[in-house]
Structures are given as C-alpha cells and as structure tokens.
C-alpha cells in the first residue's frame, strides 16, 4: 500500500475509535478516503482548490477543539499557503497536519508548476513545524499515532512510489527523526523520502541514515555522522536548504569537519524545458544509483 493510503486508513481507524479528526481537502480525494467520506461526511470538508483557505479553515477548526488534517496537492499547500503556515502553524502553533500528495519530482510529467522541489527547504526555515517524509508504511502509520497522541503542527509529504513496509515500529524512534540501516562503513549516505526508500531496498554495503522527520535530534545525528570519513547526501529536491544543507549546518554547528557531497537538484542548465519525468530529471541531474555507486567507490567526485 502506498504511504498516503496507509496514512488515511490509519486516520479512518482512529476516527472509528472516537478521535475527533476533521479532514480539510482542497478538491482531492483518494480511494483510501472513500470509507472516511462515506462514514463521516461531516468530517470531510472540501474547500475547493483554495490552499490558503484550507489552512485558515483548519486553524478555525482547531480553535473549536478538533484535530485537523488538510489534504492538498504538492507543492501548493506550502508554496501557495506559506504565509498561513507561518502565522497559524509556526507562530501560533495550531496543531494542523498538512498532508501533501506527491513529493519532489514524483509528478514531473505535469511540469515545473507541479514539482515540490522547495517545500522541505521552505519549511525548514520555520520553527515548530515538523516535516515528515515517510520512506515506508510504518513511518506513515506512526505519523498518525503521533498526530493523535501529540497534537502539534506537522507537514507530511507522500511519495506515490513508496509502497512497502521496510521498518518495524521498534526500529523507529520518532523523536530522534532518523533511522539507521546497513553496515558501518567509511561512508554514510544521508537520504530522505524516495531516496531513503530506494537505498534501503538496494541494501548497499554502507550505512544509510534515513531522515524521515525534521528537525531531527541534531546532537545524536552529529554523533552518528562523526563516525564516518565521508558523507554523501541525496534528496529529491533543490540543494539549497534541503537535507544536504541541513547536514552541513549541523556539522558546522557542532564543530565537526567531515567532507560532504550533496546530490540534489541543482538545475545548472535551468529548469526543465522539455516534456519530462522523474527518471529523465534524475538522469539529467546525476541523481542515479549508478552515479551514487561511483561516488561510493571514489570513481566520481
């Protein structure tokens, strides 16, 4: 099951058990929402394609005592409604969960307008908003548990190509924000979302650090990084402000000097001007497993 559907089925289960959760949609549905809409029509509020209003309405519903999830198509919940997120979620700390369909270049076919390239970078500038990028169903499920047990502002983005369960719940420390897998090695790979998912399945003989929730525990993250001679970060988003930037900032703030290579979208030749898809963009930007393996072997800088 994909991570979005797992998230919505878990919410349905929570509401069935008596949790007061409302869902504010911006003209989006999902097969996993059909039961919710049928059984709890009052709790499904559709504002139309109006991302700013979705966050504002969610804020009002929170003031009326409800747990609220907004549901929208990326990048718009962040890029169009950033001011609402900034004022209502970061500043007033209203416990809204912004659930966003599609991550990074997942829908590159639809063009530049529909690629969520900067969402993580933008949201990282805000305090109090947790950014969750599930790399498997377990993390998606645990996001709902956390939303119910600890109401707080959250943003969660779902990559439609992430469809498996890769972690046991016991392996995941949600508070820490990152999960480790793979053997200890000279090189560590720091990844998130689709890349964490791909690499975990690839089972490379290196340590993989999956940053599934930001901000993560910086001290523990830095202590982990200090064990490696070299770090490669890889993400499906722009290089400025993403997890590569985050890694450099944390190393710098803790006074650790370790070489970091950032694999991310740089668009050195400008934004795509052709009919494109995720594979083509990854190829053009050097974001492929082949490139990563060459880097690991020291055959490519």
């Amino acid at each position: 099951m994909n991570v979005r559907d797992r998230f919505f089925y878990e919410i349905y289960g929570q509401v069935k058990s008596g949790e007061d959760v409302s869902l504010v949609s911006t003209d989006l549905g999902a097969p996993s929402l059909d039961d919710f809409r049928r059984d709890f029509p009052q709790r499904f509020v559709n504002v139309g394609i109006a991302e700013q209003n979705a966050i504002a309405v969610a804020g009002g519903l929170c003031l009326a005592g409800k747990k609220v999830v907004t549901y929208g198509l990326n990048p718009f919940p962040v890029t169009r409604a950033f001011d609402q997120i900034r004022n209502l979620m970061a500043s007033l700390e209203l416990p809204i969960t912004v659930a966003a369909l599609k991550a990074g270049t997942a829908t590159a076919e639809a063009g530049m307008s529909h690629m969520a390239l900067e969402n993580i970078s933008l949201l990282r500038t805000l305090k109090n908003v947790r950014i969750i990028s599930p790399s498997d169903e377990t993390i998606s499920k645990m996001a709902v548990d956390e939303m119910i047990s600890r109401p707080a502002p959250r943003y969660i983005q779902f990559d439609p190509f992430i469809t498996d369960t890769l972690y046991d719940e016991a392996e995941i420390d949600y508070k820490k924000g990152f999960a480790l897998s793979g053997p200890k090695s000279d090189v560590a790979i720091v990844a998130t979302g689709i890349w964490a998912h791909k690499l975990k399945k690839e089972n490379l003989p290196v340590r993989l650090i999956d940053c599934f929730a930001l901000p993560l525990c910086e001290k523990e993250f830095c202590d982990e990084l200090k064990q490696y001679k070299r770090i490669i970060t890889i993400e499906d988003g722009v290089d400025r402000g993403g997890i590569g930037s985050m890694t450099l900032e944390i190393l710098n703030d803790f006074g650790a000097v370790i070489p970091v290579e950032r694999m991310a979208l740089k668009f050195g030749n400008g934004y795509p001007r052709v009919f494109s898809n995720r594979n083509l963009i990854f190829e053009q930007e050097g974001l492929t497993l082949d490139h990563l393996k060459k880097k690991l072997e020291g055959r490519e800088s």
């Binding site: 009052q42 209003n53 519903l61 009326a64 007033l92």
Partner: peptide
C-alpha cells in the same frame, strides 16, 4: 485574540473554520 491578525486575509477563513467547528460541536 483567538488569533492575531495583521497578515491580511487569514482571519475570515479562520473565523469560518471556527464557525463550522462550533456548529459541528452544536455550540
């Protein structure tokens, strides 16, 4: 002070959400 305004255009949506929530709560 349910919400501080100032960033214009947000308050009416919040007020609408609040009104909807209160109706749902039968308040």
């Amino acid at each position: 002070f349910e919400f501080y305004g100032g960033s214009l255009g947000i308050g009416i949506g919040m007020a609408a959400g609040l009104a909807l929530g209160l109706k749902q709560n039968r308040e």
